[in-house]
């Protein structure tokens, strides 16, 4: 086990190092951030002074090693645009993204797996067919469009829910959370639905496919022959057996949604990290971009690692394989 952890950790370090080099060079290739942000009436010497102030006059390799040097001391640098430490900037917006993403991914998973199992258990019922039809919609309709339609329907025409932004927050453990207030909840509903729709469809499909396959296996036949009730079969045997692909996808989706909920965050003016990274790209705010992508790489490595551990806990076959 320890060997496995160490191996994963080394992998993560390599991934993050490669990532930082790519982002660094990529941004450098696009151009000098100063050209985008400098005011039009700046004179030549002001421009040169600004470039020097940000350390952009140094050769690329030197800039990179300065960055890595600071990073190793836990300093991700300061945003060019906001002049505050990058970690504060990202950390300040992480709770917003976290609560939105967790709400939507958890809802999608719980609801999607239940509906999917039902659709796989009674594949010919009209309800199952309806569920599958709706799930096709969830896949095929672009999420920015759904977002705008949700706003138009529930915020503009019906006036039931707010059109965007994050509602009132309550500070718990020094972090402001909005899902603990009624106003906050009303704000989170639409973006969470918007974000959840695609995942819901995917979970339904995964659960249904798994259910149909497992229901035909000997495990289920023998369980039935032993006189175990259907609900126990579904809960104890089926759910465990279909959960491997679902957990894998859950992990990946959680990661990618945390990192790139950009479209939803933009449409609903949600003050999360996705919006931050897009805005940073628009002005080539390199410290934010590099730090953010490194954190994302770290996030994915961590999630994948966790997912592997969870497999071992849930599925006896995986445990057995590891021992053998």
């Amino acid at each position: 086990m320890l060997g496995f952890v160490i191996q994963r950790f080394l992998q993560a370090v390599v991934v993050m190092a490669v990532m930082s080099v790519i982002v660094f060079c990529g941004v450098y290739a696009i151009g000098n951030p100063v050209d985008i942000v400098i005011p039009p009436d700046a004179t030549q010497d002001i421009r040169a002074a600004t470039i020097a102030k940000l350390g952009l006059d140094k050769p690329l390799w030197e800039q990179y090693f300065l960055f890595v040097g600071n990073l190793l001391q836990g300093d991700f640098g300061r945003s060019f645009v906001y002049n505050i430490p990058v970690l504060d900037l990202i950390g300040g917006r992480l709770p917003a993204t976290l609560e939105l993403v967790l709400t939507s991914v958890l809802t999608a998973t719980v609801l999607g797996v239940s509906l999917g199992i039902y659709a796989g258990y009674r594949p010919d019922g009209w309800l199952a067919k309806t569920i599958m039809a709706v799930s096709v919609l969830g896949f095929s309709v672009p999420s920015f469009w759904v977002g705008l339609i949700l706003i138009l329907t529930f915020a503009v025409n019906l006036g039931w829910l707010p059109a965007g932004g994050r509602g009132a927050t309550v500070t718990v453990l020094g972090v402001p959370w909005s899902f603990l207030t009624l106003d906050g909840l009303s704000h989170i509903v639409l973006p969470a639905i918007n974000l959840a729709l695609f995942k819901l469809a995917m979970m339904i499909r995964l659960a249904r496919a798994g259910t149909r396959e497992i229901m035909l296996t000997d495990t289920i036949k023998f369980a039935r022959a032993a006189g175990i009730s259907e609900s126990v079969i579904l809960r104890r045997h089926l759910l465990k057996l279909i959960s491997i692909p679902i957990i894998t996808v859950f992990g990946l989706e959680l990661g990618s949604t945390l990192a790139f909920a950009v479209v939803t965050e933009t449409i609903f003016s949600w003050p999360g990290v996705g919006k931050l990274i897009i805005d940073s790209i628009a002005v080539l705010d390199r410290p934010v971009m590099v730090a953010y992508l490194i954190l994302v790489a770290f996030l994915f490595v961590t999630i994948n690692f966790t997912v592997d551990l969870v497999f071992a806990l849930i599925d006896p076959r995986v445990r057995a394989g590891a021992r053998a």
Partner: peptide, 14 residues
């Protein structure tokens, strides 16, 4: 920053 969202917020009374 999004033009459509800003307009929707106005129409929704936010």
């Amino acid at each position: 920053p999004n033009d459509s969202s800003r307009l929707a917020a106005l129409k929704a009374g936010q």
